[in-house]
Simulated assay, not measured.
Amino acid sequence: MKNPQDVFADYLSNKSLKMTPQRRLILDTFIKQNAHLSSEELYIKVKRRDKSVGQATVYRTLKLLNEAGLIEPLDFADGVTRYELSYGETHHDHLICEQCGQNIEILDTMIEKRQEELAQEHGFALLRHKMYLYGYCKDCRSKKK
Rank of each mutant, 00 (worst) to 15 (best):
K63Q: 12
R114W: 09
K32W: 00
Y136Q: 08
R82C: 03
I96H: 09
E84Q: 14
A9I: 07
I106F: 14
S86N: 11
N66Q: 14
L127W: 07
Q5R: 15
E67S: 13
K51T: 11
E89R: 15
L107W: 15
V58L: 09
G54E: 11
Y136T: 11
D139E: 15
N66M: 08
K63T: 11
Y132H: 11
K113V: 01
H122G: 07
N34R: 14
A35C: 03
C100F: 09
K144E: 08
L65S: 03
G54T: 13
Y136I: 11
S142A: 09
N66E: 15
E40C: 00
K63P: 01
A56E: 09
R49S: 09
K2F: 12
L126W: 01
L42F: 06
G101T: 12
L37P: 04
I111M: 12
L74H: 02
F124H: 13
L17S: 06
Y59A: 07
S16R: 11
D28K: 12
L70S: 03
G88M: 08
E105A: 15
K138M: 08
I96S: 02
R114F: 08
A35L: 04
G69D: 10
K138D: 13
Q99Y: 12
L42I: 11
H122T: 05
L118S: 08
D28Y: 05
V7Y: 01
N3A: 12
V53K: 09
A68H: 05
H94N: 12
G88V: 08
L27C: 06
L64K: 13
E98W: 00
R23F: 04
N34D: 14
F30S: 02
E41G: 10
F30P: 05
T61V: 04
F30R: 05
S16P: 00
N3P: 06
D10I: 03
D75W: 03
C140P: 02
R23P: 02
F30K: 01
K138G: 03
Q5H: 08
Y134D: 00
